[in-house]
């Protein structure tokens, strides 16, 4: 064994452990795209394999999280393009996201947040999730979604407004329950959390 293979193997080892640390985040992002947890894990595993296969093209020390999220997102959309017509798909994805909320004990506000998210256009939803939940900067989200920074900013801002409107006005009902109090529940919980910290 010369020093060149040794260096390649060290590099792979570093890559592998960094990739392993990202698994929980890749699963979470996949879940927001697919809704269905099983399909989401399949997607996240495919993305991991793709990332591993492309490891030579990744520059160690740069942002691996953004790089793997981009791979996962591309994988998601290329699978969708292959299998179904787009309009059909958005409908399916929204329904799957709704169906995925099957825990009757789930806090009401979180349940309704998921439903509200499902009602947003896909590009607004993913922008809001990357920036608002995934902790990405606008610049990183733009790289992941392959669009301009300004586009991400406007998508996030439209998504925030729309989501707030949905949660306040209760465009949907929950088991015939009182619509429109999701925002109140979210505010109450935020209040509780801010006191418990």
């Amino acid at each position: 064994m010369g020093s060149a293979p040794r260096a390649a193997s060290d590099r792979d080892e570093t890559f592998r452990s960094e990739l392993a640390e990202l698994i929980p985040h890749l699963r979470a992002f996949a879940r927001t795209l697919c809704g269905d947890p099983v399909a989401a894990d399949d997607l996240a595993q495919d993305a991991m394999l793709k990332a591993w296969a492309a490891r030579e093209s990744f520059e160690l020390g740069t942002n691996m999280k953004a790089w793997t999220f981009m791979i996962l997102r591309n994988q998601f959309y290329s699978e969708r393009r292959r299998s179904w017509r787009q309009s059909q798909l958005d409908q399916d994805a929204a329904e799957r996201t709704l169906v995925a909320v099957d825990d009757p004990e789930a806090p009401i506000a979180l349940d309704e947040l998921r439903q509200g998210l499902a009602m947003l256009p896909a590009e607004q939803r993913e922008a809001l999730i990357l920036v608002g939940a995934g902790g990405f900067a606008y610049e990183e989200a733009a790289e992941i979604c392959d669009c301009a920074v300004g586009t991400v900013k406007s998508r996030v801002s439209r998504a925030r407004r729309a989501l707030q409107g949905i949660l306040e006005n209760g465009t949907y009902g929950r088991d015939g329950g009182e619509a429109g109090d999701a925002m109140a529940a979210i505010l109450a919980e935020a209040e509780r959390l801010s006191h418990s910290r």
């Binding site: 985040h25 947040l113 995934g134 979210i186």
Partner: peptide, 22 residues
Amino acid sequence: LRQQAIGVKLRQMFEEVVNEPV
């Protein structure tokens, strides 16, 4: 305040999956 509350909720939704065992 409302946007902050939604932000807290969004992160919570994401973190729930992040914290699941792999």
